[in-house]
Simulated scan of single mutants.
Amino acid sequence: MLTTETRTRRVVMRAALVAAVAAVLLVLVAALAVGSSAAAGAAVGGAIAVGVFAFGSFAVELVSRVMPAASLLFAMLTYTFQVALMALLFVALHRSGLLDGALDSTWVGIAIILGAFVWMTVQIVLATTARIPAFEPRPAAPSEGGAR
């Protein structure tokens, strides 16, 4: 029997896998279309997208197990922090000078956007088709007085 925790973890893992495969395909397209700097940019962008979304999803899953009442608030905060973290990482790449030659900034952005859309699409499809109960039923209490 699968627990809610196992089902949720499978949804997150599948979303991460599909987003990673999309990132690898984008790296190949970038390498063939533009060259090595585009491929490197797509790889970095894909890693940022998959890493940030996976960390956020596992954090929300952990909080929903420990404190179910706080899970919606934590999920909303996590999403806000994910967007801010991706922006900060992009700014850090820009300030480091890597986007001036080693990485193609256009392909970094494309990979982040593609990763976000693929992640959301896969997670929505899997979450809506998975049979994850809204709550765990409590075990039945033994009847008072026992068998008669």
Rank of each mutant, 00 (worst) to 15 (best):
T3E: 11
T6D: 06
T6E: 08
R14T: 10
A19V: 10
L25I: 15
V27G: 02
L28R: 09
V29Y: 03
L32M: 14
S36T: 15
S37Q: 11
A39M: 05
A40S: 13
A43T: 06
A43L: 13
V44K: 00
V44C: 02
A47P: 09
F53W: 12
F55W: 05
F58R: 12
F58G: 04
A59C: 13
V60M: 02
E61I: 11
L62W: 11
V63D: 04
R65V: 13
P68S: 09
M76F: 09
M76L: 15
L77N: 08
Y79R: 14
Y79K: 15
Q82W: 01
V83Y: 13
L85C: 14
M86V: 14
L89M: 02
R95G: 04
R95H: 07
R95K: 14
R95A: 06
L98F: 04
D100Q: 15
S105L: 05
V108N: 05
V108I: 12
I113C: 15
G115W: 12
F117A: 07
T121C: 11
I124M: 10
V125N: 15
L126T: 13
A127E: 15
A130N: 12
R131Y: 02
I132E: 15
P133V: 08
P133N: 06
E136P: 05
E144D: 03
G145S: 09
A147Y: 15
